[in-house]
């Protein structure tokens, strides 16, 4: 399988765990995987990306422009920021809940992500908008969105990975006391994904 998946969001949203789970699930299905993370200053409230590259012709750890099959975005503006990576017919799965940077709060520009979601809907062939609030209401915290969005991607058949191999990775890679709630997040995501499957 050849697949390039970009995961993006804001520092602290749990993008790294999501990328690790995809990578290890892909490897458990006998694929060659490379990935890369943003680490360092950018973590502190800045934009973060994880690049997951599945396949034997991926030599660069970063996805080249116009090559990502899928963008999983934890925040509306971050999806737009990373659109240059998306393939012409690639898919975007995006959280509609914005994270307001302090620069916006200071200038009171009223950024709420809605114009980003509108742009994505109009300009991407496949754009699945997910309401992060639905998951935090059901799971008690926004912390499990990273696993929920994996469920959405899986349910919408965008990951190219078997549901069970992802669940297996959740069981082994996530801290034991959080396994159950994360599995629940994943299942909730799958349902949303299935509703949005083309």
């Amino acid at each position: 399988m050849n697949k390039d998946i970009l995961i993006c969001g804001v520092g602290g949203q749990g993008t790294v765990l999501a990328s690790k789970l995809i990578a290890s699930a892909a490897m458990s299905e006998n694929n060659i995987v490379h990935s890369a993370e943003t680490i360092g200053m950018a973590q502190r409230g800045g934009s973060v990306t994880s690049h997951v590259r599945i396949g034997q012709n991926a030599f660069s750890p970063l996805i080249p422009d116009h090559c990502a099959d899928l963008i999983l975005s934890f925040e509306p503006a971050e999806a737009v920021r990373n659109l240059k990576f998306l393939k012409k017919d690639g898919a975007v799965i995006v959280n509609s809940q914005p994270i307001k940077p302090i620069t916006e709060t200071l200038d009171n520009t009223g950024y709420d992500g809605s114009n980003m979601i509108e742009y994505l809907k109009q300009n991407c062939k496949t754009c699945i908008v997910v309401d992060g609030k639905y998951f935090s209401d059901n799971l008690g915290s926004s912390k499990f969105f990273n696993i929920a969005i994996l469920g959405v991607a899986c349910g919408a058949n965008k990951l190219g990975l078997d549901k069970d191999s992802l669940i297996k990775q959740i069981e082994t890679k996530v801290k034991e006391k959080f396994v159950e709630v994360n599995k629940k997040a994943f299942e909730l995501g799958i349902k949303i994904g299935e509703q949005n499957a083309a």
Binding site: G11, V80, R81, K84, N123
Partner: peptide, 16 residues
């Protein structure tokens, strides 16, 4: 591939 991208919020690293 994408034109007329709306203004993006700037996210400089900040103190937590």
């Amino acid at each position: 591939a994408f034109e007329n991208i709306p203004n993006l919020p700037i996210r400089p690293p900040v103190l937590c």
